[in-house]
């Protein structure tokens, strides 16, 4: 069984962290991952930086630009991660835009992920339809889970369809917007969280975008299985460095 599915069966609310690979320094990637696992994070999204990250707010844009300037590429990332399964056992997901994966070759990318022990991919700009028709078979061949996004604007019908083709979790984008930290959620988000909870979907839901602290984590996981913190973590990392990771994580729960 894929590590993601195993983790989703655990009887607890899951905390996931996103960070940009190769940031703050090119060779920080492995140390950040190891520190996150030791701090009690349940799974990790490793951001593969892209020059034009359409769905990201300023924090992740800046960390991506810096990581690219540091020399991060798909090839470099795979080299950094080649022995990661000797030290890390929690699920690892690569999150990145489609173009770098397409240039690497989608099949070669999935194959490499499987060799290293990457469990899933999140590709915000790969359309559901395109994945379903052209890439699903490749992902399945290598046992890589593709994680789909839904938003407050996604129709019930489309959510049902996405649920039917999800074999891991559904990434619930908390609000209409790009990535970025928020201090609290308003009524609109609560209504949306309740609406999705009431749909009794097959795939567990993990909420991301706008989660930044203990309060937003608690609100998000009231109904959902877990939550993902990205920008707030990257902000903390750039201000306080890798040594601050345990404190940051313990402040969330």
């Amino acid at each position: 069984m894929n590590r993601i599915n195993k983790k989703l069966q655990e009887d607890k609310k899951l905390l996931s962290i996103y960070f940009t690979a190769g940031y703050p320094k090119l060779n920080d990637t492995v140390e950040v991952i190891e520190s996150l696992e030791k701090s009690g994070v349940d799974f990790i999204e490793i951001g593969l930086p892209f020059s034009d990250p359409l769905a990201d707010g300023p924090t992740i844009q800046e960390s991506s630009t810096a990581a690219l300037e540091n020399g991060m590429t798909s090839e470099v990332l795979f080299n950094q991660l080649k022995d990661i399964r000797k030290t890390v056992s929690i699920p690892l997901i690569i999150m990145g835009y489609f173009n770098p994966m397409m240039q690497y070759g989608v099949e070669a990318f999935c194959k490499k992920c499987a060799e290293i022990g990457i469990d899933g991919l999140i590709i915000p700009d790969l359309p559901v339809q395109d994945y379903n028709e052209n890439y699903k078979a490749i992902f399945e061949k290598y046992g890589i889970i593709n994680v789909f996004l839904i938003t407050p604007q996604t129709s019930d019908e489309r959510i049902r369809f996405i649920d039917s083709i999800s074999n891991g979790f559904i990434y619930m984008v908390s609000s209409a917007g790009v990535t970025g930290a928020k201090n609290s959620f308003g009524d609109t988000q609560k209504t949306y969280f309740d609406r999705i909870a009431a749909m009794s979907l097959k795939a567990p839901q993990v909420i991301g975008f706008g989660i930044s602290n203990a309060e937003t984590f608690k609100q998000a996981t009231l109904n959902a299985k877990g939550a993902i913190i990205g920008s707030a973590f990257v902000n903390n990392l750039s201000k306080n460095g890798i040594k601050s990771i345990p404190d940051f994580i313990s402040s969330i729960r």
Binding site: F50, D52, L68, S74, Y97, N99, M101, D125
Partner: peptide, 19 residues
Amino acid sequence: EGVIHGSKTLLMQTKDGQI
């Protein structure tokens, strides 16, 4: 061939797929 601004097209990019 690559993807930019929502469209698959001809695109000036690095070998790694950065624009």
